[in-house]
Design a protein around this nucleic acid. Structure first.
Lengths: 114, 114
DNA sequence: AAGACACTTAGCGCAAGGGCTAACTATAAA
DNA sequence: TTTATAGTTAGCCCTTGCGCTAAGTGTCTT
C-alpha cells in the first residue's frame, strides 16, 4: 500500500514536466529512438536523457538498446494507476454529496443571514 | 496553450506528494479546517501549510478564512484537466495501433530471423 | 583502421521542494 | 483582560530537479 503510494509519486512527478509529457505524446504515436525523440527539444542530450530515465523509472515507458541505438516505447498499462486513483477519488466525492450540500448551505446561512 | 501546460505542471506536481494526495482524499469527504486536516500528519504546522498552499496554488482546492479558522474544500472541476490530458493521450494510442503492430512485428523479425 | 554516430558517465551550478524552529498576529474563550 | 487557539511569517537546512559541459564507450560506416 505504501509501495503503491511511492509509485504514484513517481508517476505524477514524471507527468509534472512539459518535456516529459511531450515525450509521452510522441511515444503515444509509436516507438522511437532517443535521438529522434530529442530532436525537437532545445536541450543537451544528457539533460534530455535524464527525462528519459525518469520516465523509465516511473514505469511509463520501457526502453531497449540494440547496437548503439536505444528505442523507447510507451507503457500504457501504467496509466491505469492514475485512472484508478482518480476514480477512487471520484467515488469518495460521490459518496458524500448530501454531506457537502448540508455544509455549503450552512456556510451560506452564516455569511448572508438575511 | 502554454499556460495550459503550466497548469498541468502544477496539478501533476501537487499530486506527486503523498501528504497532498491524502489531503485531497480527506477533502473528498467534505470541507475541513487546516488543523483538522493537519492532525493525522506528523509534521509541523508551517510545513503542512506549505502543502495546503501548493494545493491551493494548483487550483485543486479552495480555502477561505472565517475568524481565525481557515476552511478548505476540494475543487473537483480541476480534475478535468487531468482527465482531459489522459483521454487525449489515449486517443493518440488508439489512433496508431496499426503502426505499432507493424513496428513490433518488424522488431521481432530482426531479433529472431528464423 | 579511422572516423562518425549514438549514447553514457561524471561532475558542476542554481532553483525549488519539503522539512524544521522561533516568533508573531488575530480571534475566541474564560 | 488575560490566556488559549488557529494560523501566519521569516528564515534556516538539506535534498532533489533540471539544465549545462567535457570526456568516455561501444557500434556502425567508410
Amino acid at each position: 500500500m505504501d509501495q503503491y503510494s511511492a509509485r504514484l509519486d513517481g508517476i505524477f512527478q514524471a507527468l509534472a514536466d512539459p518535456t516529459r509529457r511531450a515525450v509521452l505524446v510522441e511515444l503515444g504515436k509509436g516507438p522511437a529512438t532517443i535521438s529522434d525523440l530529442a530532436k525537437p527539444f532545445d536541450m543537451a542530450l544528457p539533460s534530455f536523457m535524464k527525462h528519459i530515465h525518469f520516465l523509465e523509472g516511473s514505469g511509463l515507458i520501457r526502453t531497449q538498446k540494440q547496437g548503439r541505438v536505444r528505442t523507447c516505447a510507451i507503457e500504457t498499462k501504467q496509466f491505469a494507476m492514475i485512472e484508478n486513483w482518480l476514480s477512487a477519488q471520484r467515488a469518495i466525492w460521490e459518496g458524500r454529496n448530501d454531506r457537502l450540500e448540508r455544509f455549503v448551505l450552512a456556510e451560506q446561512n452564516k455569511e448572508k443571514p438575511e
